[in-house]
């Protein structure tokens, strides 16, 4: 697997897109910090951006990279290489390249601005952690969609639809169901539904970490009420971990069963 990982990192290292992605974070984090002048405010603004953008970019890169590597994959499956190493190696290659671009693009401006003395280090770290989780989750789902769909257009459409659902539609359905089920013990329902959306989970994780009740939102407040901050953080991280594990495991299973 290390060899496959090496090839895909090498390949992505030559791609302009990785650098554009890095440059984007550099620019946006730098602007917010140096023009805004407040680390906490910058973290909150960045949170709102990355919760939408990381899933979108990971989905698009994931599905495009998967389809672009089809020839490479077909060459590899005939070689003495383990099937699951091929898919996992490619997946790790892309997820790592995106996460590292994100980490560096955010880290460099924050370090220069004086993250160390701002007292916001852990909050910054929670932003990086959830951003990386979202990268690994949405890349994995995009790969899985690609693996199940030979047809590029259909695969691309489904992947975007998945993003749209998680980023936009889900919240609407969520509110709607809360309104319709007024009498029901809606707190538990709200908690349950959150677990099925990695973007919500990430938002709640950062909110619990920042611990600003005004920004907490409905589900964040319930989470804090129900579990307290520490348990709430643990639960959201575990749920995010499952969100990585399940599609990656699906990748392995489907990869082993596929005909080439």
């Amino acid at each position: 697997m290390i060899k496959i990982l090496k090839y895909s990192i090498y390949d992505l290292g030559r791609s302009h897109w990785t650098f554009i992605y890095f440059g984007f974070y550099l620019l946006i984090a730098g602007t917010l910090l140096f023009l805004g002048g407040d680390v906490l405010k910058a973290i909150i603004s960045l949170m709102n951006i990355i919760l939408i953008l990381i899933p979108l970019i990971s989905t698009i890169f994931g599905i495009m990279y998967f389809y672009n590597s089809r020839d490479f994959i077909e060459l590899l499956v005939a070689q003495p290489v383990k099937r699951s190493s091929i898919f996992l190696g490619q997946y790790l290659g892309l997820s790592l390249a995106l996460s590292v671009s994100f980490l560096l693009g955010m880290g460099i401006p924050f370090l220069f601005y004086g993250l160390k003395d701002s007292g916001q280090f852990m909050n910054f770290l929670s932003l990086i952690l959830t951003g990386s989780f979202l990268t690994f989750i949405f890349t994995a789902v995009a790969f899985l969609i690609g693996l199940f769909n030979e047809n590029k257009i259909k695969g691309f459409g489904l992947a975007i639809l998945f993003w749209l659902f998680m980023a936009v539609i889900y919240d609407g359905l969520f509110l709607l169901s809360l309104l319709m089920l007024e009498a029901y013990p809606i707190e538990k329902l709200a908690l349950g539904m959150t677990v099925f959306n990695p973007i919500d989970l990430s938002r709640i994780f950062i909110m619990l970490k920042l611990d600003i009740s005004a920004l907490m939102g409905y589900t964040g407040a319930i989470f804090q009420d129900f579990f307290g901050t520490a348990t709430g953080l643990t639960i959201t991280i575990l749920a995010l971990g499952l969100w990585v594990f399940i599609p990656v495991y699906g990748l392995k299973l489907k990869g082993n069963a596929k005909d080439f």
């Binding site: 005939a78 099937r83 069963a257 005909d259 080439f260």
Partner: peptide, 9 residues
């Protein structure tokens, strides 16, 4: 042939 090579399951 692809079955022999494990390309087709």
């Amino acid at each position: 042939i692809k079955s022999i090579l494990g390309l087709v399951i």
